[in-house]
Amino acid sequence: MAEGSRDLLGAAELLPPEELERLIEIDRVLQETMAQQSVEFWNREEFPFQWLKPLGDLGLGRVQVDGTSRLFKGLVYAVVARADVSLCALVGIHNELIVGMIDRLGSDAQRAEWLPRLEVFDAVGSFALTEPDHGSDVAGGVATSARREGDTWILNGAKRWIGAGTIADVVLTWARDEADGVIKAFLVRGDAPGFTATKIENKAGLRIMQNADLTFDEVRVPESDRLPGSDGFDKANELLLDSRAWVGWQAVGLGHAVLDDARSYAAQRVQFGKPLAKFQLIQEQIARIAGNATAAMGMMIQMARLQDDGRLKMAQAAMAKATCTRLVREAASLNRDLHGGNGLVTEPGHIASKLWGDAEIIYTYEGTYNINSLIVGRALTGVSAFV
């Protein structure tokens, strides 16, 4: 084990040289230009639009379609989360659920219009599925409606907790066809009449990500903006499977940020005449934080192998999401405790509570810990506990 290393399993060494070189450069740029600034934007619940171009320059708007390995994509998400989890939420949703979905389920015209802009972050997309009254049960409970009139669809309803909802140029919206009851996806433009997005304020974590309440009041969408490959929720579920795995990588990166913060503070903070790092209790906490991050990394390496082979199942993705976020939630709590009173403020140099708040969010979204655990339980027992 190399002293000072975060990647205790040597996962990056599994990458081919060109991917490893690119990963190192992405990590370097994010740490030098964004990580230290993120706490100020986090405190203000403000999105740093000036980061979009650098993200595009790094190729982070197109990792879903650039032909790189799943392990590379996962490690990229991890290093972005290490810089800031909101930033990783933007990059991950943008790739997994916007670029990826338009690429796989969109028409040639839709791909030609949107992908060139999305891939360089000249445009931002958001994914609108969750609703005010349908969170964990959204698969069967989508209430947002779509009514066809000639070559136009009329959307009515509401969505909640939609990431980047207030800043999106295009909102990939799931609605139920009134005629046949099938859930379908539509590309709603951010300036469409009848569409409104209201920022959700005062979140405990993920404060840079602009989550929103969306309302659709007789929003008119041309048939040409309906994703032709999206009929039925099964299509969404295939991509949501990969996005659950993506949250596991977020947990890996956040775990590395927690480990960085714990080691740095323990080395610098002096109590009773010596650094905290010399106390046995502190070393045990840091070792447990490192163990949690490493266990999550090991699980996610195998998830990447399954994805590359086309063998990842929903129960495996749910287990990865639930387990990795549980481990980082514990690690973030240990780190906050290690910081004492300084772990209760969020300011440059003291980010333990920021890391803790962000851990709470990823523990909850993309299916709560309990819901994902029930998916695993159903696979193991053959019995559904949902109904």
Rank of each mutant, 00 (worst) to 15 (best):
A109N: 06
L281I: 09
I98P: 03
E119D: 03
T33M: 13
I371D: 12
R160P: 01
K274D: 00
D358Q: 02
S243H: 15
D169G: 09
W51H: 10
V80M: 02
M1L: 07
M299C: 06
A295M: 10
P116M: 03
V142G: 05
A245F: 00
K354Y: 07
L115V: 05
M1K: 06
S353V: 11
R62S: 02
L206I: 07
G125Y: 12
I24M: 08
G367T: 01
I24T: 07
I361Q: 13
W153H: 11
Y265C: 03
S38L: 05
V91D: 08
R189G: 02
L338S: 11
V76M: 05
W42K: 00
R220H: 11
L259N: 04
P48S: 04
R288C: 09
R160A: 12
R82K: 06
R207E: 13
G10M: 03
A81K: 00
A35G: 04
L97V: 02
C324Y: 08
P228F: 12
L239Q: 14
E347P: 00
A277H: 00
D261C: 08
R336N: 15
G341V: 09
N95E: 08
A277G: 11
K278V: 13
M209W: 09
L15N: 05
G141N: 15
S224G: 02
A35W: 01
L259F: 02
L23T: 08
S353L: 14
H94D: 05
D213Y: 10
D108Y: 05
E223A: 12
A192H: 02
V171L: 12
V63A: 05
W114F: 15
K73M: 04
L155D: 13
L30R: 08
R269A: 13
